[in-house]
Nucleic acid binder design. Sequence first.
RNA 1: GUGCCUGUAGCUCAGUGGAUAGAGCGCUUGCCUACGGAGCAAGAUGUCGGGGGUUCGAAUCCCUCCAGGCACGCCA
Length: 579
Amino acid sequence: MESNRAVKPLPIAFAALVHQAVRSAQADGSLPEFAIPELKIEPPKRPEHGDYASAVALQVQKLAGKPPMQIAEIVRAHLPSAPFLGSAEIAPPGFLNFRLDRAWLAAQLDHIIAAGERVFQQDDGAGKRAQVEYVSANPTGPLSVHRIRGGVIGDTIANLLEALGYSVTREYYYNNAGQQMNVLGASVRARYLEMLGLPNEFPENGYRGQYIRMIAATLAAIYGDSLRDAPVERFRDLASESIFYRIKNSMRRVNIVHDVFFLENSLYDDGSVAETIAALRERGYAYEQDGALWFRSTALGDEKDRVIVKRNGEPTYRLPDMAYHRNKLERGFDLIVDVFGADHAATAPQVLLGVKALGYDPSCVRTVIHQMVELIEGGEARRMSTRRGDFVELDELLDDVGADAVRYFMLAQSPNTAMSFDLDLARAQGDENPVYRIQNAHVRCAGILRRTAERGMSDEGADLSLLGDDELAFVKKMLETPEVISRAVTEIQPQAIAVFALDLAGMFHPIYDRVRVISEQEDIPAPLAAARLRFYKAAKVVFARLLKLMGMSAPETMERRAKPEPSEQEPSAAEPESA
RNA sequence: GUGCCUGUAGCUCAGUGGAUAGAGCGCUUGCCUACGGAGCAAGAUGUCGGGGGUUCGAAUCCCUCCAGGCACGCCA
């Protein structure tokens, strides 16, 4: 079926045409022989420069030894025909500007509608398996806003990979071993004993957040004082279970659902950690010094060697991390994406050196480092430390601005950009949110479909040649989706999809305002109404797809979020009790 | 001090070596008893941090300086 074919980005199709034209010009001697460079074809900024443009003549002017304008003319004369190619013009200083064929463009609406929720599905990744690891927060406290940025980035990359045809495993590395978990257990035990009025000692580096007291209170409610002599490990397990449950809930609220929770424990249980040590030793990458075991990472270019087993016999985080990455590579993924925050940026290369030392090729691993999320509240930056218990929880933010807004804002900025998330602004955002601009485009399409259905109108027999320039320009823009998706993945710049969706919505709203399907004041002939209806049907499909890729909802109707009425009413009972 | 990231409109930020640098918000002015107005139209706003270089062409690549963030643990 034509409509089910995988969509190739148009720049690739145009590049093939230009490549072919240059080759045939070389074959008949119009151009000298030279290696054709990589051809970059993209939509120009200005509409008068066509729909797609190539600077090939400028690129090869030295190789060809002719003036660019002349080269452009030669290339144009040798262009093969293609169904999508309308016209090609040359423009100084040597650009080749293409226009898409109008009939072809209009016909794409049918392909879009036929493809439905799989619209713009590509096949680059067909038959390939990808693994994306993200969030991977220790279950020592509620999910922070910073962590969820990585979560949104990772989850969106996973969505985009699926759109490229990959089979994707979404994974969370669950760090349930190690010293931090014991500190958590000790912190909860201390609060529990305190609550029972028993003597206790709060650990020096303990977790001081309010949630620790809440867990302790829950334990006291369930178990009474029967845990008074229970070991730290018992508290550790109960606490991490409770926290992890909560983390999962928070993630679900922003549509993050993992396929695999990989337990750090299991690497000890199945001997992977021990094997990793043995393999490193055997290969000469491990040595003992000062009572600790060191990884000779300098042999692979690191600036200094790293401890992998501490003097007290406990492994550092690096060792299980290496074992985990070895495990990932063993599973035979074609692509592995690790999403880390900037605070963990330095360790990623070390882990990759580790797997290299173990004899694996980590070239299929892509590491995404996202910069910090700085929270600003009351004009002041808030530090986020789980240990001090001074952070803003994801749940709190979700209650304020909603899941869709959190997804969008976390996505809309490049991972490389340190994000200032002004909490007051986010809370006040409400109606002015760009999120609504995008969702409203979908809602408006849905509204048209609803209204026309009520009137028994249909798009049957639509004559798509009746569509105007604005609608066709919008179709052209929609057709950029595949290239946006593939670029967002290959360059690991998932914000491209968010920016694109906002652009598309910006193009949509004026059209909606002018190009009507139903009107009481204007007589719209049935064939024209049918063509327009089909246009909006297709637009709805594309907006739904984009929203889904971003992990956002695609509402059929807009419901105004309940706006808090700050004045008039008393602060109310929501005020927390001082403990 | 070293490494990584960043510096673009009043604010938050996009920007793929190409043509006259963009969006949202905010601001100004005007529309709107029409498919849910959370809308539409028009407008103002820029030493792309500074300086050198490469190139036919640089916000984009290289060097350097300035400013900010993160990391430099036998924490994770």
